[in-house]
Design a protein around this nucleic acid. Sequence first.
DNA 1: ACTCTGGGCTGATACACAGCAGCGGGAGAC
DNA 2: GTCTCCCGCTGCTGTGTATCAGCCCAGAGT
Lengths: 243, 243
Amino acid sequence: MNILQSPLTRKLSAFVALETLDMETLARFHRRRRSFLPGHEMLHEGQKSRSAFILAEGWACAYKILPDGERQIVDFQIPGDFLGLRSILFRTADHSIEAITRIEATEVLASDILDGFAQAPRLATAVLWAASRDEAMVVEHLVNLGRRSAEERMAHFLLELGARLSLVGAGDKEGFDCPLTQYHLADALGLSAVHVNRVLRQLREEGLVTFQKGRVIFDDFNRLKALGGFDTAYLDQDGPFLR
Amino acid sequence: MNILQSPLTRKLSAFVALETLDMETLARFHRRRRSFLPGHEMLHEGQKSRSAFILAEGWACAYKILPDGERQIVDFQIPGDFLGLRSILFRTADHSIEAITRIEATEVLASDILDGFAQAPRLATAVLWAASRDEAMVVEHLVNLGRRSAEERMAHFLLELGARLSLVGAGDKEGFDCPLTQYHLADALGLSAVHVNRVLRQLREEGLVTFQKGRVIFDDFNRLKALGGFDTAYLDQDGPFLR
DNA sequence: ACTCTGGGCTGATACACAGCAGCGGGAGAC
DNA sequence: GTCTCCCGCTGCTGTGTATCAGCCCAGAGT
């Protein structure tokens, strides 16, 4: 793959105009190609973190397990996302990562990242800028859990997924393929799997969304947005911000 | 104040060893001293963001308001914290910030920050690294909201506040002054103010914590930690990470 | 001295969501 | 083919938290 056109490069260039040195450094990140089977735990909370991944194909999720065994999914990763970066920065993983589908990724060694950041601080700025955008997403998720009902949470969540998959949602009946199970939804939204099922049924019966057989279809985009209080402002941008 | 010894400099140096250029750039950030009265809205969600703040004295909180008027507090800021940084990076504020107590702060112009980042990318790396640590805190908060009961949430939250105020908690009966009202707790923990009151009473009756008259006292540190599932690992570090 | 306001406190009632228990269907293993 | 496991689905019952309604107190304003 040409590094100049990878989804990650495009993402980073949206924040900081990258120079030759940055591109070369980024190219050196891509050394080891790896794949993982669904369900594989790519990173385990608490473990010393020796590498991160750039996701090329498939879906993953980052989560934490509580002492009582319950799980909270923090976010989902899709192709182009950088995963496990925070664990590199702080040497120890503060969360686990699991492959949801089959995954193709580039493994990046922690030492390559840290050396690269030291040599190409502009690249570091870009990567951490992207991390800031991820933080905005986590914040949205937090608000979702703190102050919305189960139905509102689900609406908001599905809309956000759609937006990330750059489904702008011009019209109704549009949708996207989604490999998540109802258990994933439950653990992401802080609900029980049983209740997720009921909420999905209710949304379907109200003619808002359909989520069946691995496909999400927005039946009434506008009413769904109103229900979920969904606003894409923080996803918009007209960068690069730093030239 | 000597910039070399400010709390912010100490914080940043924990991540990246700063050089002369970085220190000079940082010094240029401190131009305008400002103070705010309790309740003042220092930043409003959606507004074009022209400056950020470095907090010298007092407490603030970052929050979002939902369409129905409910509020979710995302995090609290204490002296040494950088506030409104994300809003600068993305030009528009994705959250509001309110002064809880009287505040003394340095206002930093967006242009100074962006110019500074361009000239001293090492400093940018340090600042964004610190932002990554903040993200870890937001993630903890998210897990708290998603998967813990009201009592557990409160226990975890008070312990985390104590830890941030570098109260290591060697022994019981230690505590800290805390200017938050029960309404703040409610909006941070996704509860009603009424319920916050009940939960505090319960924790007090169980001999775990006392929160009265603006002071939090840990009556039984270990049992409280067990209840809140509190683990400080992600706060520990032995950096600087980048030399 | 009076009122007003904000914060803390409490009881009664309502409801959203969890927990348990169980069924059915499809896909993969043997 | 049959067994098994995972995932989706549903009814019943229980409970944690919200909502409503109201009281008390301290401090600030007039």
